[in-house]
Design a protein around this nucleic acid. Structure first.
Lengths: 111, 111
DNA sequence: TTGACATGAAACCAAAAGGTGTTATATTAT
DNA sequence: ATAATATAACACCTTTTGGTTTCATGTCAA
């Protein structure tokens, strides 16, 4: 049922600071391309390219409304990043979990 | 007090799949460059470049031990990503509840 | 001390990323 | 109908990225 095929990797999509700022803008409200562009010092064409990349990662979706194309945020794909992060969380949260990790690793090795 | 100046952006550091795989490897145990390389099909030089980028983002740290250079994980900088994500979390939880409403409405209509 | 191993460092390369400007087309307001 | 607006579609350019190969250096083991 999902609309667009996530051709672009989510990690790569959020790697660019301009794209993260676009996401931030769209998190407040949906906006047409021209208005998004007005928040940056780069050209509209450049913004459109960023929107395409975000769109391919399913992070935004654009909808034609009259002569405008209004983009809105779709944050669900960020779940993938969160899941990835959750694995590493154990390493920074507290030393007990680090210790547990080491113990588990040792147990594995001794099997 | 932090050792290296994070010259490389954390988001960009984790954008590359090879670098994420390196992090995964080092999360199990610290490894010398040669052993890291053995897990990939690309050259040692390429791996070293990835390690440099990870190092500049403070995600790993290398330490000379004899003729080896052993790298270990430093996951703390990932906190920045987590913080960034936490802002968007509200949107996807929200959207899920909205979606549930739509589905329920649709089911009603099809009865 | 000599060879094997592990890394460092440099030069080079193709493709991708991030930008630009120009031109064409569709839509709205007057 | 016409001018202004909003976007689409190109063609083009420069820098960065991710990779290569080659050569030099430092360390360990026999």
């Amino acid at each position: 049922m999902t609309s667009s095929a996530a051709k672009h990797d989510i990690f790569q999509a959020i790697a660019d600071p301009t794209r993260r700022k676009v996401l931030e803008l769209l998190s407040e409200k949906e906006l047409p391309i021209s208005e998004i562009t007005s928040h940056f010092s780069i050209s509209r064409t450049a913004i459109v390219k960023h929107l395409h990349i975000l769109s391919e990662a399913d992070l935004v979706h654009g909808q034609k409304k009259g002569r405008e194309k209004v983009y809105h945020l779709q944050s669900e794909p960020l779940k993938e990043v969160k899941d990835w992060l959750s694995y590493y969380e154990q390493f920074w949260t507290n030393k007990l979990s680090i210790l547990r990790h080491i113990v588990e690793r040792d147990e594995e090795r001794n099997q």
